[in-house]
Design a binder for these strands. Sequence first.
DNA 1: TGTCCACAGGAAATACGGGGGT
DNA 2: ACCCCCGTATTTCCTGTGGACA
Length: 412
Amino acid sequence: MQSHDMGSRIINRLKTAVDSTLIKNRRFLDDEQLIRSEQLEVLEEIFNANIRDAEINELSSHFSGLLRRDHPCHLAVWGKTGTGKTLTLSYFLNLLSQLCAAEQIPLWTVHLDLTNPGPCFRALNDLACLLDASKYYRRGISLEEIMQKIEARLADYRGYLVLFIDEVDNVRSDKENFMAFLIRRLPQRIPAKLILVLVSNHLDWPNRLDARVKSFLKVNELVFEPYDAMDLQRILRIRVEKALDPKLVVDGVIEKISAMASREHGDARKAVALLARSAYLAEKTRSKLTLDMVDQAALDLETDRYLTMIQTAPPQLQLTMGAIIEAKRKLKKKIVCSGDAYQDYCDMCRRFSIRALTNRVFGDLIAELDLYSLVRSRIVSRGRYGRTREIILDLPEDLVENIYQTIISKIQ
DNA sequence: TGTCCACAGGAAATACGGGGGT
DNA sequence: ACCCCCGTATTTCCTGTGGACA
């Protein structure tokens, strides 16, 4: 019977589809979607796999004084993004507070996250909010007032206060002020035993401090090395087991992803993102997760990165990028000079009736594009034909087209 | 050797917008 | 409603500068 045949074929296909679902629990591919307890579960496994063992040991000895009612000094933590600084520290501080609670030691830990850069004002403001010392102000209150609010809030607290400050050097203008407050002023004015945990991406960060502040800063240092390929393999393996069907992951995939990630950055978050992307690709084609898919996924991630970067960029930056693309097309050369690009930029502004910015800012905008590696630029002297900035656009042609369309449609 | 191009990029000034205090 | 304060964006002003060319 024809129809019966057809029916059983469909049923079979459905069955194999069910059998071969690669992704069992997609939430474990994306940290954002995990609830707190699941995050801790993942963390627990990571730390049980002896990753970041050395760092946790150092942390333990640094804070061991707490249990003897001593006052440990501050702690400066250094490591690149995605090396697990935040994770390890939150995990550790969480354990520490449990321990202190059991021992009846008053401990207050506050996690101030300065991941997105902001001025001194916002940093203090955020801190005040975390301490429950004031409401959130957008503007209009002096720095002094915020400091006083914080001090007032802490006037009666006599226990330990651990301020875990993530990405300290993201405090842009007036950083001196912020650091001086934390290091010099605050400890003198409040009764609490203050322990600062200052996390940063830059190793030379304490040297850029004002000398008078620096002399007050007594710190221990702790360095997080980037994960090596072996660490990443273990981290990925945990994810694979939680999120995917390991049988459907071709041998060598984990090794490949961790090798790629450790070669480039050693960033665990990016490695997991690559795993996730590959898994989605595999799921779409309903096949096993192969090595080729990892390559494809890496490419996709790259493309996405550029596109979201340009989409979320301020309009003037988009316009600058658009002008560079136009200039390159018009000149039919690989290299565009800043003067030509500025001409085209002004033209574009006229076309879309947007007020053009000065040459001065245009230069800065190009530097910014360079920073995001959307273009490469360098300063060249052409003798008596002056100096200029050569702008090279060497992204794949279809990506450039894609970016260009995005920009044009955004502006209109 | 000096000149001079066509910009780079630092510093200071100015404009702007939004919030608080009164 | 008014003024002042703060952070940010942009302009204005200015001082270099590497090397081709005369």
